[in-house]
């Protein structure tokens, strides 16, 4: 009886801790949403999340931007950059992973080890020669530095993730397809890829979010404001806006987070699975 009581009390404390901690974790996000609907003079007045008066012109004026271009343009630009990058990453990583996971070619071990080692290669050490290379190719101030490397499976994280996933799949289906006279490409297209859909979705989600949030690379490669992504546009507006228009910045911050939030909540399952498989089976 005493024991039971003790357990109940500790469970209650655990829940209180978990809830309090959860509130602390999401408060900044809730705050920025609420601040974007508050009149400027109210933003820093209280911790209260409910605006005393709801304003929406923060969104309308924030969207118009500070210069020649609206956030609509920045959003469009970001999609033009992100969507091909995601599609090409998914296709190239899947094909390469299929090669690594299903064939036994010469130097496979060495090549695979090289691929894994690039997983730990800090990006900054190749940043400068890559910039010079892209400059020579005439790719600066375009989205090619993002899109074309994606075509060549340059994100080892995803290749590795797919290899791990493929290794976990039963091979019987593929083997019976060989007996039926399918070649390896037909097998990849008709059997392997349909089985990989969950991993492919995880990969697409992660690449979308990472490219969407990318700041350093866009800062380096994109110069003209007409080609700015949301990240660059947001940074420009915090530098340009007079200190008074806080709620406009909050509004654009919320808008820029929105695609990631929507994807996260609609595909949570794939998030957790994606992290768990790559993180663990190393």
């Amino acid at each position: 009886m005493n024991d039971l009581k003790k357990i109940n009390v500790s469970i209650i404390f655990t829940y209180i801790f978990l809830i309090a901690f959860a509130l602390l974790m999401v408060y900044p996000l809730l705050w920025v949403v609420s601040a974007s609907f508050k009149p400027n003079e109210d933003i820093f007045k209280s911790l209260n999340l409910i605006p005393s008066r709801v304003v929406t012109d923060s969104y309308i004026n924030g969207w118009k931007g500070t210069g020649q271009y609206t956030f609509g343009r920045f959003f469009l630009n970001t999609f033009i950059m992100v969507v091909p990058t995601v599609i090409f990453t998914v296709v190239s990583s899947t094909v390469v992973a299929y090669g690594f996971a299903r064939f036994n070619f010469p130097f496979k071990k060495v090549l695979f080890a090289l691929m894994i080692s690039t997983l730990m290669l800090p990006d900054s050490v190749i940043l400068i020669p890559r910039y010079i290379l892209f400059n020579r190719f005439g790719w600066l101030d375009s989205y090619k530095p993002f899109i074309i490397p994606a075509l060549l499976a340059t994100a080892p994280f995803f290749v590795f993730m797919m290899v791990q996933f493929l290794r976990g799949l039963p091979k019987e289906l593929e083997e019976s397809a060989v007996i039926d006279g399918c070649n390896s490409f037909q097998i990849l297209l008709r059997i392997t890829i349909p089985l990989c859909i969950p991993a492919i979705i995880s990969m697409a989600i992660f690449q979308f979010i990472w490219t969407w949030n990318d700041f350093l690379n866009t800062l380096i490669y994109i110069n003209s404001v007409s080609k700015y992504t949301v990240s660059l546009g947001l940074r420009m507006s915090i530098d340009a806006t007079s200190v008074v228009n806080w709620n406009q910045i909050m509004a654009m911050t919320v808008i820029s987070m929105l695609p990631c939030i929507v994807i996260f909540f609609s595909a949570q399952k794939y998030f957790v699975e994606g992290i768990a498989t790559t993180g663990l089976k190393g």
Partner: peptide, 9 residues
């Protein structure tokens, strides 16, 4: 053929 598949990488 495996080499062909990993050639993009």
């Amino acid at each position: 053929i495996g080499l062909l598949y990993i050639s993009p990488w």
